[in-house]
Amino acid sequence: MNKTERLLAIVMELQRSRVRTADELSEVLGVSARTIYRDMQALSEAGVPIIGETGTGYSLMEGYFLPPVSFTVEEAVSLLLGAEFIEKRFDPAFRLSARSSRRKIEAILSGPIREETNRIQGGIRLLQKDEMDLMIREKVNLGIIREAMLDGKKLRFAYHKRIAEADGSRVTERTVAPYGLAHDEQNGWLLLASCDLREDIRHFRVSRISGPAVTDEPFQLPDNFNLQSYRPKDTRSIRVCAIFNPEMADKVDEANNYYMETAEAREDGYHVTFRVRQPEELLSWILGWGADVAVTEPESFKNRIKEEIKKMKERY
Rank of each mutant, 00 (worst) to 15 (best):
M1E: 12
M248A: 15
R231Y: 06
R156Y: 01
K154I: 02
K251P: 00
V176M: 01
K233C: 04
K153I: 03
P246N: 06
G111W: 05
D130W: 00
E173F: 02
L192H: 07
A265F: 15
L192V: 12
T72W: 07
Y230H: 12
L190P: 00
S32N: 10
G188L: 12
I145E: 04
A291D: 14
L221S: 03
I108S: 07
K154R: 13
S229L: 04
L29K: 01
D23W: 04
R34E: 10
T172V: 14
I145A: 00
S207W: 09
R205T: 07
N257F: 06
R205H: 02
M312R: 07
R266F: 15
G168C: 00
Y270G: 00
E297I: 07
F65A: 12
E115Q: 13
V48F: 04
S70F: 01
T4G: 11
L127W: 14
A42Y: 01
S26Y: 05
R275F: 02
R170S: 10
R18H: 11
F65G: 00
A249K: 11
K311D: 11
R89M: 15
V77W: 03
R6H: 04
R34V: 05
L221F: 06
S97Q: 13
L25F: 07
D23I: 13
A265V: 13
R266M: 15
Y37R: 12
I209R: 02
A9N: 09
P67C: 07
S169W: 01
V293M: 09
A42G: 00
V240D: 07
I50E: 01
A46T: 03
L142D: 02
A9H: 04
E138D: 10
T56R: 15
E138V: 05
K310T: 09
P246D: 08
I136S: 12
D292W: 11
M61V: 10
P279D: 04
F94V: 03
A166F: 10
R162D: 11
K104Q: 01
D234K: 05
A193W: 03
L66V: 08
Y159G: 04
G188E: 06
R208S: 11
T175A: 08
S70N: 08
S110E: 15
R95V: 06
A166R: 14
V276K: 02
G52M: 00
A148F: 13
V293Y: 06
T54V: 09
R103I: 05
G288Y: 01
E24P: 02
S229Y: 01
S26H: 10
K313S: 05
L7N: 06
S101F: 09
P112H: 08
R174C: 02
Y259G: 04
V171M: 10
E264K: 12
N224M: 04
E74Y: 10
T56D: 09
T117V: 15
R239Q: 08
N2C: 02
R89P: 10
V206E: 05
Q186D: 14
S169Q: 11
E267W: 03
M61H: 11
N2Y: 03
V176P: 02
D167S: 07
Y159R: 07
S101G: 00
A33N: 01
D253C: 13
V272M: 01
W189Y: 11
Y230F: 13
A166K: 14
A22R: 12
L181N: 05
R95D: 05
Y259L: 04
S237T: 11
A242Q: 08
E299Q: 15
G143E: 09
V28A: 12
R38K: 13
